[in-house]
Design a binder for these strands. Structure first.
Lengths: 214, 214
DNA sequence: TAGATTGTTAATCGATTAACAATC
DNA sequence: TAGATTGTTAATCGATTAACAATC
């Protein structure tokens, strides 16, 4: 059966993972929920519940094995093995993403970049070749890539999304502000910078108003 | 009094805004909740409640004035006037952010970039000069900038955060995976790519398993 | 008027937190 | 044993949805 897990819990797992890897690097072998809770500011009980979904069992009075827990979270997220992805849009953001080495920690490997600007084709971008989008379908199918990273200008988002679906892509990591029309079976995860900035703006305004009330 | 609004609602407002601007560009003058609801896949009642927080009042049987609604959302988010920000970290991601023209739509203006790599200092990045971080405090205070964008390597995140606080920065948009130790009054908004990818991975795995159950 | 739409109140649902039991 | 910690069940809280009233 497929594990049911809340989006919120899912979003916390990588934070635990990062903390645990740090502990592991320091040679620490066991860790308690209280430890994680205090480091990340997440309630102990919540940490315990989140960890429980990975199927790992801790030892009362001791805690969890750091290595075990890391492996369990990685495995739960499907990050134990490298997953290939293609990136479309080799502009500023696209090249930053392809050059971001941190993705390795999440088991993500961008195998190739695509663009429709002939000035960009053929050049290597951080060691990955840039192809014309015309070749997307062929290459993605041949390499059986499931994940597509969308970093094109907003106006091109929908059309590019269709290209990706046509290329057999099953999940799109959408870095554009555009809302994608999604065929039911397509997984779309939006990285919505505007939403994030809205939260920042609102809290900042609240903080400033608290100081100088109108 | 400071408007109370849920983070979720706050995150939806920019989506409405984007849709409304599109409508406005097409010459549309009124819009109903149903209209927004269908375009964005958000329940009508929820749209209505979200819009209500901006203080705007619609007309039964008609809807809301597109221009009015845009102005109300922009004003609520504090996006009607441009807000200055400084960016620290002029690497791949930093230069993508400084070159991203979309921020203009959210009233965000990156006035300068900072780095500690002498190879990057002095060069212009998408038209903005890159300064040494030593000059951060002086410039940020002089320009009374409230927002700092953090795009340094994860290892440098905490130290840079302290520099920003020392420079009078009140809100940090954190693009690093690091968890920041936050003084109570500092606003921190994390753009957590790992969390986002975790959600994507999990849904993709679920979709693939649905096809080929174990 | 009738119908469409806004606005609000009540019900539901899900996530978080609190309380407690189990265990080493 | 006593105490610390895990694991689970119950209570709370907040966000979403459903139902309804108001209005043009």
């Amino acid at each position: 059966m497929v594990q049911a897990i809340s989006v919120q819990a899912l979003r916390r797992l990588p934070q635990y993972l990062r903390f645990l890897r740090g502990m592991s690097a320091k040679g620490r072998e066991v860790v308690s929920c209280r430890h994680i809770s205090e480091a990340l500011g997440v309630e102990q009980t919540l940490v315990r519940k989140d960890i429980a979904v990975t199927g790992i069992v801790g030892r009362p009075k001791v805690g969890y094995g750091v290595g075990e827990l890391i492996a369990a979270i990685e495995s739960f997220l499907g990050w134990s093995n490298t997953t290939d992805a293609v990136l479309v849009g080799a502009g500023n953001l696209g090249s930053a993403l392809i050059g971001y080495e941190g993705f390795r920690d999440y088991g993500l490997n961008i195998v190739a970049a695509f663009d429709n600007d002939s000035a960009k084709i053929g050049r290597a971008l951080h060691g990955r070749e840039v192809f014309h989008v015309d070749r997307l379908r062929d290459l993605a199918i041949r390499l059986s890539v499931n994940i597509g990273i969308l970093a094109v200008p907003a106006e091109a988002a929908r059309a590019t999304c269709e290209l990706l679906v046509d290329a057999g892509i099953r999940a799109i990591w959408n870095f554009t502000p555009a809302q994608l029309e999604t065929p039911a079976e397509l997984v779309v995860e939006n990285v919505n910078l505007a939403s994030s900035l809205a939260v920042l703006s609102n809290r900042l305004n609240a903080a400033l108003n608290r100081e100088k009330p109108v």
